[in-house]
């Protein structure tokens, strides 16, 4: 008994280890104990036995998990359908748009011709040309931005590009 009292003192001072705390909780309590501290340790012990008390809790969890698996498969199926539909719609739209465009401009040559034909076969040369062209644009751009009131629009576009990148 004396040993227990020592342990209790130690407990209230926060100095007990886990084994000591266990021995405080897991000891035979007399049913009619009126000692409040004893009831407290009894309480701690019983508190650990509290169970989640809802009927069919496990069954419901398993059902939800299985349901979720099914749902995921369903969603991915829908996803592919959406993708397919989007592709079809866009291709159709593209064809319609292209046909429309070439219809209004009868004199236009097949655009692919010029897009696909390179003036240069040597990448180094083509790169040199590109470099020059870009520098030219760059130079003119700067000249323009120094001069025009369109600068506002220009920097706005830059901001948008920044966000985009």
């Amino acid at each position: 008994m004396k040993e227990m009292d020592e342990l209790k003192k130690k407990y209230w001072k926060g100095r007990t280890d886990r084994d000591e705390e266990r021995s405080l909780k897991n000891r035979p309590f007399s049913h009619d104990t009126t000692h409040v501290e004893d009831i407290y340790f009894q309480y701690l012990n019983e508190k650990k036995n509290e169970k989640i008390n809802f009927p069919d809790f496990d069954v419901e969890i398993i059902r939800k998990i299985k349901g979720q698996q099914g749902e995921q498969r369903f969603i991915s199926k829908i996803g592919y359908w959406r993708l397919a539909a989007a592709v079809i719609i866009l291709i159709t739209a593209g064809i319609l748009f292209f046909n429309n465009q070439s219809g209004t401009q009868t004199s236009a040559p097949p655009p692919e011709n010029l897009v696909l034909t390179d003036t240069y076969n040597d990448p180094e040369k083509a790169f040199e040309e590109t470099k020059k062209a870009l520098l030219f644009i760059s130079n003119k751009l700067n000249k323009g931005t120094e001069l025009t009131s369109e600068f506002a629009k220009f920097s706005e576009t830059q901001e948008n590009l920044k966000k985009e990148n």
Binding site: G94, A108, P111, L114, D118, Y120, E129, T130
Partner: peptide, 29 residues
């Protein structure tokens, strides 16, 4: 889709001066 459409005006101008020796034409694909 966009590049099909946008090439038309530019392509036309290129076509127009394609044979003209005074013009330098550069196209990089």
């Amino acid at each position: 889709v966009g590049s099909y459409a946008q090439n038309n005006a530019i392509a036309q101008l290129f076509d127009q001066y394609y044979e003209d020796e005074n013009f330098t034409k550069v196209s990089v694909s």
